[in-house]
Design a protein around this nucleic acid. Structure first.
Length: 414
RNA sequence: CGGGCUGUAGCGCAGUUGGUAGCGCGCAUCGUUCGGGACGAUGAGGCCGGAGGUUCGAGUCCUCUCAGCCCGACCA
C-alpha cells in the first residue's frame, strides 16, 4: 500500500474530548473515527488490525472444533419473551417497532437466537456436542459509553455457544476453550489472566473473565502471585494483604481490562426454550450449554493501552496492519526510485508493506511512522543509498541496523 | 440515571464592561528546504451546537434543549 494513496492520514492533535489513550492514538493514526459516543468507523488501517484480530480468533475457535455461523442482528420480541429477557434487558437492548405492530430488538447477545437455531436442527445425542460461534457487530445501549474502543454502543464481538449431553463433556470443552483463549490473547500480544467472576444473570456459578492487567482497566482484581488464584473484587472475599485461600501466599490488587468472559449456562436457556435431545435410552433432556464471549474491537483498544510509547502505538507482530513500513526520506528521485524497486520486490515476495512515498519532510514521515507503530521500519535515504544499504529498525528498539539492499529480502523473510 | 466540565473554521484554541469574529495547525498555489513534525509569500475556509427570550444591538446576558468527555451508578 502506498501511503500517498491511503485514506485516513495522521493528525497532529487529537480531538480534545477523546481522553482515553487508545482512542487518541487510534484517531491520530487514522485507524478509527468516532461518529458518536461509543460508535466508531474503522478506516483502512484500523480495519486491517481488526481483521487480523478476528482471524486469530477464528483460527483458535476452529481449532477447538467450533464452526462459524452468522446470526441476524434484527431479532423478534417473541423469541426473547421465551426467556423473559425482552423485559429484563430493555435498558441495554435497542428495541423498536418494525412493520405493523411487530417489536424488534437489535442483538446485544445471542443466547435466544442460537438456542432457537439449535433446537430446530439437533434432536439426538448422536449430534452432540456442537459448538457454534459468530463474529458480529453487537449493539448495547450502554448507560455510559467510554474509554474509546473499550466500551462502545456498537462493537465487535465473537460469541460462541456450545451444547452438550453431559456436565462432564461440557466441562471438558469449557477448559479447552480457556486454553484456547489464553493462546489467542497471547497471539494478540496480550498477557491475559483467568479471573473468577460473577455469573451475572447467566449462572449461579462463577464465570471466568480474561483480564489484562492495566491501570486504565475498569475492573479490580485480587490475585496471588504464587498461584493462579484471581477473583474480581465483586465476588472476592479476600482483601489486599490477606493470605491466598489457595496457597497461603499474599493477595495483591490490580486494575484489569476484561477482554473475554466465558459462562457455564447449564440448562438455563435450553430449559426455558425447550432445546432438548433424545439420549440413548430414548429420554428427552435439555442440552447443557456454555457461552464464550470476547470483543475483537475491545482487544484492539486494549492492545493500544498496553503496547505504546510516548510517540505512538507499538503493534504486536500478528495484529500489525502491515509487517513492514518502508519509508523514503528526502524528496530525491534516486531515493524514490530505489524505494519503488524495493517496494515492488517486497510486495512480490508476499510481504505486507506500507510504503511512505509521500513528499513530506523527514520529521513528518518518521513521526508518522512512530505513531502508526508498524513493527519493522526500513528507511531509504540519500544517506543509506551512499552506503548501498537500508536502515532497519524494529519498533521500540532504539538501535537501527544497516543492511545491504540485496540481502534485505532474506533478512526480512526469517 | 445523579454529579462535574465543555460546545466559536477540518483540528487545537482566543474572543475584554454586550457593538457585527481572530490565532496556530491543517488545506490550496508558488518558491526555497529535505534524517526527527523546516521557512517565506498568497489564498480559501464561520448558522459562534440548536430553539426561545432580554436589548437599538447577543459569540458574550437569561431560559430551555441537544451533543461530547470525565467521576459515580449500571455492565447482559
Amino acid at each position: 500500500m502506498r501511503q500517498s494513496k491511503l485514506f485516513g492520514k495522521t493528525i497532529k492533535e487529537a480531538a480534545k474530548d477523546e481522553i482515553s489513550l487508545n482512542a487518541r492514538l487510534l484517531n491520530r493514526g487514522g485507524f478509527v473515527e468516532k461518529l458518536m459516543s461509543g460508535v466508531y468507523s474503522y478506516l483502512p488501517l484500523g480495519l486491517r488490525v481488526l481483521d487480523k484480530i478476528k482471524n486469530i480468533v477464528r483460527e483458535e475457535m476452529n481449532a477447538t472444533g467450533a464452526m462459524e455461523v452468522l446470526m441476524p442482528t434484527l431479532q423478534p420480541k417473541e423469541l426473547w419473551d421465551e426467556t423473559g429477557r425482552w423485559e429484563g434487558m430493555k435498558d441495554v437492548m435497542f428495541q423498536f417497532k418494525g412493520r405493523g405492530d411487530s417489536d424488534i430488538g437489535l442483538g446485544c447477545t445471542h443466547e435466544e437466537v442460537i438456542t432457537d437455531l439449535v433446537r430446530k436442527r439437533i434432536f439426538s445425542y448422536k449430534e452432540l456436542p456442537v459448538s457454534l460461534y459468530q463474529i458480529q457487530d453487537k449493539f448495547r445501549n450502554e448507560p455510559r459509553a467510554k474509554s474509546g474502543l473499550l466500551r462502545g454502543r456498537e462493537f465487535w464481538m465473537k460469541d460462541m455457544y456450545s451444547f452438550h449431553t453431559t456436565e462432564s463433556d461440557f466441562e471438558k470443552y469449557y477448559d479447552e476453550v480457556k486454553l484456547s483463549y489464553l493462546q489467542l490473547f497471547k497471539r494478540c500480544g496480550l498477557d491475559a489472566k483467568i479471573v473468577e467472576a460473577s455469573g451475572g444473570i447467566f449462572t449461579e456459578k462463577f464465570s471466568h473473565e480474561f483480564q489484562v492487567f492495566c491501570e486504565t482497566g475498569e475492573d479490580t482484581i485480587h490475585y496471588c502471585r504464587e498461584c493462579d488464584f484471581a477473583q474480581n473484587i465483586e465476588i472476592c472475599e479476600e482483601n489486599v494483604g490477606d493470605k491466598c485461600p489457595k496457597c497461603g501466599g499474599e493477595v495483591f490488587e490490580s486494575k484489569g481490562i476484561e477482554v473475554g468472559n466465558i459462562f457455564p449456562l447449564e440448562t438455563k436457556y435450553s430449559g426455558a426454550m425447550n432445546a432438548c435431545f433424545t439420549d440413548k435410552n430414548g429420554e428427552r433432556k435439555p442440552m447443557i450449554m456454555g457461552c464464550y464471549g470476547l470483543g475483537p474491537s475491545r482487544i484492539m483498544g486494549t492492545i493500544v493501552e498496553v503496547s505504546h510509547d510516548d510517540k505512538g502505538i507499538i503493534w504486536p507482530k500478528e495484529v500489525a496492519p502491515f509487517a513492514v513500513h518502508l519509508v523514503a526520506l528526502g524528496n530525491d528521485e534516486k531515493v524514490f526510485s530505489s524505494a519503488d524497486q524495493l517496494y515492488d520486490k517486497l510486495v512480490s515476495a508476499g510481504m505486507e508493506v506500507l510504503y511512505d512515498d509521500r513528499e513530506e519532510s523527514a520529521g513528518i514521515k518518521l513521526g508518522d511512522s512512530d505513531l502508526l507503530g508498524i513493527p519493522m521500519r526500513i528507511v531509504i535515504s540519500n544517506r543509506t543509498l551512499e552506503k548501498n544499504s537500508a536502515e532497519i529498525k524494529m519498533r521500540a528498539e532504539e538501535n537501527a541496523e544497516l543492511v545491504e539492499l540485496d540481502k534485505l529480502l532474506e533478512t526480512i523473510k526469517e
